[in-house]
Amino acid sequence: MPGLDINKKTTALVVIDLQKGIATQPTQPHPALEVIRNAALLVRAFRKNVMPVCLVHVVSSPETMLKVNSDQSFSRPGGMPVDWSEFVPEIAPVPTDVVIAKKQWGAFYGTDLELQLRRRGMDAIVLCGISTDIGVESTARFAYEYGFQQVFCEDAMSSGTAEQHNAAVKFIFPRMGRVRKTAEILAALG
């Protein structure tokens, strides 16, 4: 696998759905706490290097959720806790961060994420979060179609099952970018 070069002037970090209502769910192959710890390391490194950090979270209600006919639907038992969409404390936003609120799986559709990245001169993203095969993969597919270079931080993302995570990491992400570990990305940032 070739070495990893990250252009600090044109690369942003995009963190998907590390919020209290999602990051408390069981994940595999990496426990959510490990994903949060690794994402927090990336957030700190990007902030230290004065590189954009985009924190994405789902902010929806039963009225604004997508309602499609499907064989398997997502439903929340009862109401959502008041803090469901709040970011986990380890990556709490600071004033220089870009905060993106979304109502669907991917971070681009229906948001100004692309505009925020382009205005900052970004042409590459490092992507992480929960869930690998849902929010992260949906965002990655849009980013690929928009022409962004991508680095996927494999140990700073996870899914409901190891099979779901591994399918995206093994078959999808290598066709859209480079799959690396947190340590490799941190080393490339210096």
Rank of each mutant, 00 (worst) to 15 (best):
residue 1 M to K: 08
residue 1 M to N: 13
residue 3 G to M: 04
residue 5 D to F: 09
residue 6 I to H: 10
residue 8 K to C: 08
residue 8 K to D: 13
residue 10 T to M: 04
residue 13 L to D: 03
residue 15 V to S: 05
residue 16 I to W: 00
residue 17 D to F: 01
residue 19 Q to D: 00
residue 19 Q to M: 08
residue 20 K to S: 08
residue 20 K to G: 01
residue 21 G to I: 02
residue 22 I to E: 00
residue 25 Q to A: 13
residue 29 P to G: 12
residue 30 H to T: 07
residue 31 P to Q: 08
residue 32 A to L: 13
residue 35 V to G: 02
residue 35 V to F: 11
residue 36 I to T: 04
residue 36 I to K: 08
residue 36 I to A: 06
residue 38 N to Y: 01
residue 39 A to Q: 04
residue 39 A to C: 07
residue 40 A to Y: 13
residue 44 R to K: 15
residue 45 A to Q: 07
residue 48 K to D: 15
residue 49 N to V: 01
residue 51 M to T: 06
residue 51 M to N: 09
residue 51 M to E: 06
residue 52 P to G: 08
residue 55 L to M: 08
residue 56 V to K: 01
residue 58 V to P: 00
residue 60 S to T: 12
residue 61 S to R: 03
residue 62 P to Q: 05
residue 62 P to R: 07
residue 63 E to H: 05
residue 64 T to G: 02
residue 64 T to L: 09
residue 65 M to C: 06
residue 72 Q to V: 14
residue 75 S to Q: 07
residue 75 S to T: 12
residue 75 S to E: 14
residue 75 S to V: 07
residue 77 P to H: 01
residue 79 G to I: 08
residue 81 P to E: 15
residue 82 V to M: 11
residue 84 W to I: 08
residue 87 F to Y: 10
residue 87 F to V: 06
residue 93 P to Y: 06
residue 94 V to S: 10
residue 95 P to T: 04
residue 97 D to E: 10
residue 98 V to I: 15
residue 101 A to L: 09
residue 102 K to H: 06
residue 104 Q to W: 04
residue 104 Q to R: 15
residue 105 W to K: 04
residue 106 G to M: 01
residue 108 F to P: 00
residue 110 G to P: 14
residue 111 T to E: 15
residue 112 D to C: 04
residue 112 D to N: 13
residue 116 Q to F: 02
residue 118 R to Y: 02
residue 119 R to L: 15
residue 119 R to A: 13
residue 121 G to Y: 04
residue 121 G to R: 03
residue 122 M to E: 10
residue 123 D to R: 11
residue 124 A to M: 06
residue 125 I to M: 10
residue 126 V to C: 01
residue 126 V to F: 01
residue 127 L to H: 11
residue 127 L to I: 14
residue 127 L to Y: 00
residue 127 L to M: 11
residue 129 G to N: 03
residue 129 G to I: 06
residue 137 E to P: 01
residue 138 S to V: 01
residue 139 T to W: 06
residue 139 T to Q: 03
residue 141 R to W: 11
residue 141 R to N: 02
residue 141 R to T: 01
residue 141 R to K: 12
residue 142 F to G: 00
residue 142 F to Y: 03
residue 144 Y to M: 00
residue 146 Y to F: 15
residue 146 Y to H: 14
residue 148 F to G: 00
residue 150 Q to D: 01
residue 151 V to G: 00
residue 153 C to N: 05
residue 153 C to P: 03
residue 154 E to P: 00
residue 155 D to F: 00
residue 155 D to T: 05
residue 155 D to G: 02
residue 156 A to M: 05
residue 158 S to C: 08
residue 159 S to V: 09
residue 160 G to F: 14
residue 163 E to P: 00
residue 163 E to G: 01
residue 164 Q to E: 10
residue 164 Q to T: 06
residue 165 H to G: 09
residue 167 A to V: 15
residue 169 V to A: 12
residue 169 V to R: 02
residue 170 K to P: 04
residue 170 K to G: 12
residue 172 I to R: 05
residue 173 F to H: 08
residue 181 K to I: 05
residue 183 A to F: 02
residue 186 L to K: 00
residue 189 L to N: 00
residue 189 L to E: 03
